[in-house]
Design a protein around this nucleic acid. Sequence first.
DNA 1: GATGAATGAGAGTTCATTCAT
DNA 2: CATGAATGAACTCTCATTCAT
Lengths: 208, 208, 208, 208
Amino acid sequence: MIERPLSSRRERRKEETRQRLFDAALALMQEKPFDQITVEEITERADVAKGTFFSYFPTKEQLLIAYTQEMVDEVYEFLEQLQPENATSQWEVMRQVMRFIAEIDGRSLERTRSMMVACCQSNHLREMMAQMVDEATQRAMLGFARGQEQGEFRTDVSAEQLAYYAVRLYRICLMEWMMERPDQPLSDLVEQTLDFFKPAFVKQEEPR
Amino acid sequence: MIERPLSSRRERRKEETRQRLFDAALALMQEKPFDQITVEEITERADVAKGTFFSYFPTKEQLLIAYTQEMVDEVYEFLEQLQPENATSQWEVMRQVMRFIAEIDGRSLERTRSMMVACCQSNHLREMMAQMVDEATQRAMLGFARGQEQGEFRTDVSAEQLAYYAVRLYRICLMEWMMERPDQPLSDLVEQTLDFFKPAFVKQEEPR
Amino acid sequence: MIERPLSSRRERRKEETRQRLFDAALALMQEKPFDQITVEEITERADVAKGTFFSYFPTKEQLLIAYTQEMVDEVYEFLEQLQPENATSQWEVMRQVMRFIAEIDGRSLERTRSMMVACCQSNHLREMMAQMVDEATQRAMLGFARGQEQGEFRTDVSAEQLAYYAVRLYRICLMEWMMERPDQPLSDLVEQTLDFFKPAFVKQEEPR
Amino acid sequence: MIERPLSSRRERRKEETRQRLFDAALALMQEKPFDQITVEEITERADVAKGTFFSYFPTKEQLLIAYTQEMVDEVYEFLEQLQPENATSQWEVMRQVMRFIAEIDGRSLERTRSMMVACCQSNHLREMMAQMVDEATQRAMLGFARGQEQGEFRTDVSAEQLAYYAVRLYRICLMEWMMERPDQPLSDLVEQTLDFFKPAFVKQEEPR
DNA sequence: GATGAATGAGAGTTCATTCAT
DNA sequence: CATGAATGAACTCTCATTCAT
């Protein structure tokens, strides 16, 4: 058997049917929360029989997990392709990453709310997300350490701390968007929020 | 109004039943999300008949709304009793408010998750919460304005902006707690987060 | 104890509360079928407590029976006060009786439908109605016999037969009204129907 | 269309289940009015799961409508196959039609009462029945017109009127049967009633 | 006698999941 | 592997009736 070269993390879902189910579910999640979507609706839209669903996802919930996996993979891919060493400003790198994620989440309000609901309800999902956040924090830490060396960031707290809080800032935006400002693009919220909180990260002018 | 001693016992009993239902629901919400709780479970635990539930709450959802209302009222009461004019540091006032809220939310992880889920699913609830956040922001704004005058806070952004972002900082803590650090007290997260982000609010040392 | 003179068949319902309940029920029956009316609605409209209902009517169904009794009594009273001996045309007498009943039924479509439903469901009610129909038939028979003697009606069938079918003609009108022509006054239907079917009752011109 | 033998067995099974539900409902309607029958009873008797009911009838009420449709269809079929042009007596044709309907209704007293109740309660059902009555009246009209030409019927009223009242005569029988004479065959009542009222339809002997 | 809180069986309906075809 | 009929537990909500006050 020939070696599968570069089998990226997204090397699942070859079968077309699975993809169809997936897409149908995604589309429906734009309309209403996941737990108000029935398997029948999904299969109907995917134009397969109801029972077929369970050949691809052992459980309705598994679909959500698979979906999360895709999102997470997408983010990982992006993170991998980043070359922050070359950047002049690490803050800019972080801003880019956040915008990237904001664009994924921002595609659909309802779907993102569904995810939130699901994360509140499923330990498994929560762990997946937590892991991703951890990963992102790790990478951000490298960036912040570099930035500290270059005098970009404050040094009275560790790079880890900087990374930790930077990554968490995203959640302000996410909740604001979901709860109160669904009409504003999520990435705009990200921009504004990062701008506002930047002083908590950068090096202060030396008092003299 | 004349006291009606005859019916007062009955009224007390009635209030008691309502409270029993309420408490039973709260207790259950510590175990699982609200929409996985059945009315029957609630009544069973409250030791009343199933139908009784609907004498007190026209709808299962109304219970959640009533619960939210109670929480919101509690916060309002606290806000009203504050006398921020007398405070030496407005930042401290805000910290107090946030800790107060953190203590309410912090009572039960699952219950708070339930609320989150419910807020994602119900427009009504979302609006209630949004209103409370608005109110809190308004009050915070007064504090920040005062603080700006006294040289406590930066003046390159409006007091409104300061208030807006300060209030939203709470959400970082809330999500961190719900998603990743359920074992750490929510109010500790609040302390740490406020400390970290303080530089984005206070007046910088004049460079010289 | 003084003798209660002329205590007519309607000598029930002295208590005002009972009457209020009764009236409330009647009013509601104008709006919807009896079994869609709840005891609570009735007591609310009567402005008494729910439990009070059951002091006056052992059962919800009993109210309907009482109502029927009232209607039946009203008809009996009317029948008693008739003096058909003095009439020139017995057919006219019958027409009068029918119009009287039509006016009672015609007061409310929904209420009459409710009665029909109830009669289909309750043996008791059915018997009451049947008895009234019998009574009416008996009286009509006397009239028809008189009319036969006077040459008004055909003599090839018995007066009993004439009475029987005459009384039943009313049902054509009732069903037509309930099912298809709710907008036309019931008594008009009675007039037209009696006119049409008159030839089946009167004496034919002697062929010679 | 190509025969699909593979699925035909399944289709047969499906039809069978539907029929089982239908029959179970019919059987129960012989015992009590439709609205006192629960879906659970029906499925129990049909020996299928409760949920299965709703695969076949979206609503409990729809079952009744389907049942009515069947009856109505049966009548339409009969009407279509009639060839009244060839009849010597149009009155006889009408008598046949009425007997046919009487046989359907006469199969079960309770079921017919159920239908009556349902018709009183559902606009939809009422309309269906009214339509059928209309259709029957239309057809009867043709017969009466023919009969008028042939000297069978009176000519001082229109064929439409004759048809209208003839058709409505059936209701006398139906109510008599349902309310007072459940033990007498409905079709006997039809015979007797038609006989009695015939003089209101036929041409009178010319007085001479 | 009046009250209304409490009862609890029961309603119609939904839907994730199974499994014979 | 796909199908979709069947399952049945679970859901929210209703309401005639009871009974302690």
